[in-house]
Amino acid sequence: MKNIEEIIRQLKKTEPEKEYTVNSLNLILANPQNPKNKFTFSLADILKYSVAMGLTGILIIFSLSDAFLGLNAKILSPILLSSLDEQKLKNEASQVDIKISISEAKYYNDSINKVAVALNETAQNGPDHLNSAIIQKEIQGLDINNQNDKNIDDLLNKLTL
């Protein structure tokens, strides 16, 4: 018995009739061609574009988040930005602290004398000069139309001239 594969190969001798092929071709070519589809996307194209858009979206979300700047800059960015240099940021932070300390020391130095005078006056006279009731009473006691006061004003004017 012949091998079954060899027998199958003999089927290659089968041919269509010449007359049939000629007639068939003529009938086929008598038909018009369909126009090319302009918007045909294969499954591979759809996957390719959707993956690209998805990754772009994820990148945008990361770039807008603080986590990206704080944690992922070194991983995701091929060129490290100078503003993100950790050592430079530390130096800048320490310099800011020093400037703040100096300005605070100057303020305390200027204000300490004023505070000392105020404390001394308070200790000698008490806090009466700050009492609003006493101040009101003194205002009421003032007589602006008093003649003696006018004379004093005249004398003072002569001295200054």
Partner: peptide, 8 residues
């Protein structure tokens, strides 16, 4: 079919 759709 092949002739009609060969453009695609």
């Amino acid at each position: 079919s092949a002739w009609q759709n060969i453009k695609n």
